[in-house]
Design a protein around this nucleic acid. Structure first.
Lengths: 214, 214
DNA sequence: TTCATTATTTAAACTAGTTTAAGAGCGTTG
DNA sequence: CAACGCTCTTAAACTAGTTTAAATAATGAA
């Protein structure tokens, strides 16, 4: 689990031993743009490791989101409680996803969201202050996150379009084929909430689908 | 309508006379971060003016979105046609909004969206190539758009949450109180599509609301 | 102006999805 | 072991929103 981080076959010098979890983050960044080993060595130590036990909260409503987290192990649900007391899941964050309330993080306002670990999880995170320092120290990181955020907009727009054009069964089918690992992990109640339907109706859809296939 | 652009009382030297429309864009940028007159003078000329007649398309499905547009006059609808042949409005872009298919623009892929002017409109736009040049020439623009895109994510997330927690009537109420100018301008059919309901059901909601108030 | 087209409303029949209630299954804890 | 809490399912009654169809109002082109 622990190793000297390598980039393109060469050992990179970090302040001290760094978990291989950081390589996941490096790979994530490199999928967006190129970085020299030196640049990576400047960026990656800003991200600290944090373990979150199953059921523990990374953020609760009313708090200010202090960190931008990158999931390297486990899974989180990001949800809110509406006025009728019902939990509405905004999204799930598994490995290689970002986990945060970007609104609360960027604007330092009280969050409406709960972020809870669905299993024992590990994130790499950066605080708002450190993120700002990182932008100053490695200006290329502005570009990195400009592109990462750009992709995020695309993802949210597409999700909204799917919600407008697909019915519940189609959305369920999309969900389980696109995120099979998350489907395995989380309860149907949470999936229903994510899809914007009741657990009872999801149960009906599942029955219809299973009988149709036989 | 035309004037020498000024920043903080001082006349700024542009390559040539520039429409005051550019001041709207400058104000927009300055709401996100500070720029010196010199910086502004380097950025703003990248944005060209384009008039779009009522009913004309800025983009049609299958094309690649070649521009990132900023609306200075008029209004656009951004929509798609689903498999059942129904038009689904993704959003409206009035003055001070960005208008583009960010997915198609950034990834140079065929767009699923139509962008049509709902009245005679004017935009300031930048091409993908020029945007890249602008990032190179004024690196601060990376930060500018990193923050602009960050805000956009927040807006899309909030919209999705509203869709999950509000029913059609609540969404309609939110729409007409938040965007009264757009409500005045566009047809109920388009508003219904934006809200994700049929025009007939919107008509019922409107009736309920008007009788309830008397 | 006139004609055609499209937006809006109304209403009745319908359907997708909710609500309420109850029972079965299952892991956890005292 | 029993008791508890939780998830999942089933089913009946219900409601939010759709569909179809027709009438009217508004708009735009000739």
């Amino acid at each position: 689990l622990w190793a000297r981080p390598q980039v393109q076959g060469k050992v990179v010098t970090f302040p001290k031993y760094v978990c291989v979890y950081h390589e996941l983050l490096q790979e994530h960044f490199k999928r967006t743009m190129e970085f020299s080993p030196a640049e990576m060595a400047a960026i990656v130590p800003y991200y600290k490791e944090k373990k979150v036990a199953k059921g523990a909260y990374l953020l609760q409503q009313g708090q200010i989101c202090q960190l931008e987290g990158f999931v390297v192990e486990g899974c989180f649900k990001i949800s809110t409680i509406d006025d009728k007391g019902l939990e509405k899941v905004l999204y799930f964050a598994a490995r290689d996803w970002w986990v945060m309330d970007i609104d609360s993080f960027a604007n330092r306002t009280a969050s409406n969201l709960d972020i809870q670990a669905l299993e024992d999880s590990t994130i790499l995170y950066i605080s708002e202050q450190d993120k700002e320092k990182l932008y100053q120290e490695v200006p290329k990181v502005e570009r990195l996150f400009r592109i990462i955020y750009q992709k995020a907009i695309v993802a949210w727009q597409r999700r909204l379009m799917r919600n407008q054009t697909m019915n519940a069964e189609e959305r369920y089918h999309y969900f389980i084929t696109t995120y099979p690992e998350i489907n395995e992990l989380v309860t149907n109640k949470l999936i229903a909430s994510y899809l914007g339907i009741t657990q009872e109706f999801l149960s009906m859809i599942r029955k219809r689908r299973s009988t149709k296939r036989n």
